[in-house]
């Protein structure tokens, strides 16, 4: 669990120092991230914007501890994470990061409730605790009456709300949302953005990746990535 101690209030959630990421494509080396310096404080609602190929997805993967930088240092909640092993990163993903994806990524054979409690099964949480917490999170996104529904019985907006509940279940330090409205009609998209704004209002730290400037405007701070660099 994240301890909201006085200390962590002062520490930034993310502190990136000269983060680099290269890809080798054949003979040539592509610099996806050239030297990213970034500070995201607790409670911030940040939008990462940039065109396709700008490096924002790579940055998102590094922030989400799904990918490792080739150079530089990254601190998450004050802890240096760029050199961690795969297992340690898995543990941090579980404890500190909640993901929301464009395509929801709900497991099709699990009910809404089971999808929400999924992260907890890797956390040794007891069955009754899991159930109670998953019910609570599902209710918070307004789906208390959809617990037993399978993903294909839910609308796109509802599926994304299930995914948000799943992201919140471990009370993460940060929510990383990758184009969360990209697969939704505008009305559902607005509903989702309303939830994010509400979460921000509750003091959650949110990093939103989008290419949609309309969506980005909901955020408190917009960071534009271009050619592997932060330009504003």
């Amino acid at each position: 669990m994240v301890k909201k101690s006085k200390n962590s209030k002062q520490l930034p959630i993310y502190q990136l120092e000269s983060i680099k990421r290269y890809y080798q494509t054949g003979q040539s080396q592509v610099q996806a991230l050239k030297a990213i310096n970034l500070l995201i404080g607790p409670g911030e609602f940040v939008a990462l914007v940039g065109s396709s190929g700008s490096g924002k997805s790579t940055l998102m993967h590094i922030l989400g501890l799904l990918d490792r930088p080739d150079g530089g240092k990254m601190f998450l909640d004050g802890e240096e994470v760029s050199g961690l092993s795969e297992n340690q990163r898995a543990r941090l993903r579980r404890e500190k990061i909640g993901f929301v994806f464009q395509t929801f990524h709900l497991l099709p054979r699990l009910t809404a409730l089971e999808n929400v409690e999924l992260p907890l099964i890797y956390n040794d949480v007891s069955f009754s605790d899991r159930l109670a917490r998953a019910r609570e999170e599902l209710a918070l996104v307004g789906l208390a009456n959809r617990e037993k529904h399978l993903p294909n019985q839910l609308s796109g907006g509802q599926q994304q709300r299930v995914a948000i509940a799943r992201a919140l279940i471990n009370n993460p330090s940060v929510i990383l949302a990758d184009e969360p409205t990209g697969n939704l009609d505008s009305q559902s998209g607005e509903e989702i953005m309303t939830i994010f704004k509400k979460l921000h209002g509750q003091g959650r730290t949110i990093v939103l990746v989008t290419h949609d400037s309309e969506v980005a405007r909901s955020a408190q701070r917009i960071i534009t990535v271009k050619d592997g660099l932060i330009i504003s």
């Binding site: 579980r94 404890e95 890797y122």
Partner: peptide
């Protein structure tokens, strides 16, 4: 594959 990716994203370790 997608399921495995998702499980890993939410914190499953390789051994899980």
């Amino acid at each position: 594959t997608a399921e495995i990716g998702l499980r890993k994203a939410v914190g499953a370790q390789n051994k899980d």
